[in-house]
């Protein structure tokens, strides 16, 4: 992540975009084979999540089937201890994971960008104060904090999980963005914008942010990835919202319902496997994003 050429990215993206009709950044991502696989995988997950009612044979909470059965024609991955269809839960669970990834990833990125940019651009006292909070966010052990927040919060639900993940996850991104803006703010074109009479807000939004897009995207991907994992982890520990179907709660229930002892491997393995696949797709896409921020990786 050192010395990313964030200024060059937009330029090459614009150049690449001119050749074909697609947006330039997409062309670069699509060309990378690993990234292409990741994009296809992610697209499949999104499609399944959006079309969940069509794909899933039953509702995720319908518990009218025989409990704890193995895979069969009617129930591809068997049923839970409460008599729910595992495959349907798996399909609906994709929604939770993606929503958490998207929303928590976005929130984290927004906070990180706002704090990082303000601290890095203004410097002085503002920077001292904000950096203090960034450092605080970095040194506090995340997992215990998550567990405490999730465990003792008066309300339960997906919203709470997203907030917990955001609160614990923004600091690292903010630190990186602060570092990047400190190098960008000394560029001559920033001085030129000041002499052109532009306001600070405008300089940040129009002169600096466009040169950091790749870093922001990388940050978003990282946060979304972390959020998906964190949600599954919290849910597995039983701190999730029992009313939501997610892969984490499925794992949690599978372990509570004694899936291993009853030999229902599918119930246990399936949620873990799709989770791993989703995370893999993000990682593969990140290879393409590397190419986006480093022109040398692009000629393969």
């Amino acid at each position: 992540m050192t010395s990313i050429d964030t200024e060059g990215v937009r330029v090459t993206a614009l150049a690449a975009g001119r050749v074909s009709r697609l947006p330039g950044w997409f062309v670069i991502l699509w060309r990378n084979r690993k990234c292409r696989i990741g994009l296809v995988m992610l697209a499949a997950f999104v499609a399944v999540a959006v079309l969940a009612p069509v794909v899933a044979p039953y509702g995720p909470r319908v518990d009218e089937f025989a409990a704890s059965t193995g895979p069969s024609g009617a129930h591809w991955l068997g049923t839970t201890a409460r008599g729910e269809d595992v495959f349907s839960q798996l399909v609906y669970g994709a929604r939770t994971s993606l929503v958490v990834g998207l929303v928590a990833g976005l929130l984290t990125t927004v906070i990180a960008v706002a704090v990082g940019l303000t601290a890095g651009y203004l410097q002085g006292v503002v920077d001292e104060v904000l950096s203090f909070f960034i450092n605080l966010g970095l040194v506090i052990p995340v997992l215990p904090l998550m567990i405490v927040l999730a465990g003792y919060a008066p309300v339960k639900g997906l919203g709470l999980i997203i907030i917990v993940i955001t609160v614990t996850g923004w600091a690292f991104g903010a630190r990186i963005k602060r570092a990047q803006i400190i190098t960008l703010r000394t560029r001559d074109y920033i001085t030129a914008a000041k002499f052109a009479g532009d306001s600070t807000a405008r300089i940040i939004a129009f002169e600096i942010v466009p040169n950091m897009i790749s870093l922001i995207v990388v940050g978003f991907m990282g946060s979304a990835l972390g959020a998906i994992g964190a949600e599954a982890g919290l849910a597995f520990l039983g701190l999730g919202d029992p009313q939501t179907t997610s892969w984490g709660t499925m794992l949690n229930q599978a372990s509570l319902g004694g899936a291993l002892t009853t030999g229902q491997w599918a119930w246990l393995v399936a949620p873990g496997l799709v989770l791993a696949l989703l995370i893999t797709s993000f990682t593969l896409i990140n290879f393409g994003i590397d190419a986006l921020s480093n022109p040398h990786l692009r000629e393969d």
Partner: peptide, 27 residues
Amino acid sequence: LVFQDPFSALNPTRTVAYALSRPLRNH
């Protein structure tokens, strides 16, 4: 100001028209 390095004095993501229009609109 006229800067030393023409490569860092212009924002790589902004068009020539944009760079020239800012002082005109502000001042």
